[in-house]
Nucleic acid binder design. Structure first.
Length: 361
DNA sequence: AATACGGGGAG
DNA sequence: CTCCCAGTATT
């Protein structure tokens, strides 16, 4: 009987999917793909990866670009701190490493946005260092093969998984081993209804032998997530800004950092939606608005909360826009909205504006 | 150790 | 609807 790792590698050699980032194992391409793949499925990443690499073929090109352009290419992919860190890291690589990525996991991990997983992936795949990776796939495969019954959310269990993954590395072939483990987790050893019948390492799997594969890995139950009502103003320009809308850029850090939005904010208890909008626009931009017609309602889910976004037409009754709680603002036409990166919820407002253009636009 | 951080795929 | 995804940074 072959060993677990030998069977795994033999399967991967025969069944590896043809993914764009498997054609270019340069450190830059591997790094980019691994950042995009954080908490994001392969199918979602492919288009973004190809567009991004076409626009920024080298780390120098990325480092030279304005952050706004990077965010625009990242628009819709989520976890925008990844894009901000990617841009920062590109500048570090160019300015401090002469454009060459460091070749060791320990040093790679000092780059912004590069944690232990990503450092291990770049070091093993692009540089051939014998270091492991532990992502959601690896956790699931190892928890099943070794029938790990402890909560994988616990730090002690994570440590055990890293040690286990490292102990299995075939000398000189960590990259192939790491990829094969992740591919098996994605294609065969899936979270629900794993395809044990065609699994190349079924005979090595303790959970399968015990019939508990659907119960591995063990995870603690999630906490309920809150819901908020959020208001947004589509503020029509007057006088010199006739035919334009006021949009604002969110602060660089935090939720949707650096993205643009229709300004507004969360409704407080006891407040009506128009009252909330008037308050938020005073607080964030220093303007007093007259709230007009309700425009559209957009429901959206984030990781830790859900929102219902209520958009209203507005006009400025007093004051001039100021950068108080926003990083920037701009008066733009409907066509010019395409140049700015927006979150998904605000794109629902844009879709409504394009579908039923207002007379005043 | 717990929480913040997006959006979409798939059952 | 729920769960989860080639995780990282912050507190």
């Amino acid at each position: 009987m072959q060993t677990l790792v030998a069977d795994l590698l033999a399967w991967f050699e025969k069944h590896a999917a043809d993914l764009p980032w498997r054609r270019d194992r340069t450190p830059y391409a591997v790094w980019l793909s691994e950042i995009m793949l954080q908490q994001t499925q392969v199918a979602t990443v492919i288009g973004y990866y190809e567009r991004f690499l076409a626009r920024f073929p080298t780390v120098e090109a990325l480092a030279a670009a304005p952050l706004d352009e990077v965010l625009k290419l990242w628009e819709g992919l989520g976890y925008y701190s990844r894009a901000r860190n990617l841009h920062r890291a590109a500048r570090v690589v160019v300015e401090q490493y002469g454009g060459r990525f460091p070749g060791r996991a320990a040093e790679l991990q000092t780059l912004p946005g590069v944690g232990r997983y990503t450092a291990g992936a770049i070091a093993s795949l692009a540089f051939g260092e014998d270091v492991p990776v532990v992502d959601g796939n690896v956790i699931r495969v190892l928890a099943r093969v070794f029938d790990i019954a402890e909560d994988v959310g616990q730090e002690a269990t994570r440590k055990r998984l890293w040690t286990l993954a490292e102990s299995l590395i075939p000398p000189g072939a960590a990259g192939q081993y790491n990829e094969s483990l992740m591919e098996l987790g994605r294609v065969i050893c899936k979270p629900r209804q794993p395809e044990c019948g065609v699994c190349p390492i079924q005979v090595h799997c303790a959970a399968y032998r015990l019939g508990v594969q659907e119960g591995r890995p063990v995870k603690a139950p999630r906490k309920p997530i809150p819901h908020y009502d959020v208001v947004a103003g589509v503020i029509h320009g007057r006088d010199g800004q006739q035919g334009r809308i006021l949009i604002a850029q969110r602060p660089a850090d935090g939720l949707l950092g650096g993205l643009w939005e229709f300004p507004g904010g969360k409704r407080e208890p006891g407040e009506s939606l128009p009252e909330a909008l008037v308050r938020e626009l005073r607080e964030e931009m220093g303007v007093t608005v007259e709230v007009g017609a309700f425009l559209v309602k957009v429901r959206h889910a984030f990781t830790h909360f859900r929102i219902t976004l209520h958009a209203f037409e507005c006009w400025i009754a007093a004051g001039e826009p100021a950068r108080i709680g926003v990083a920037d603002f701009a008066w733009v036409t409907l066509d010019e909205l395409d140049r700015y990166a927006f979150g998904k919820a605000d794109q629902g407002i844009i879709a409504e504006l394009r579908e039923r253009p207002r007379r005043l636009l």
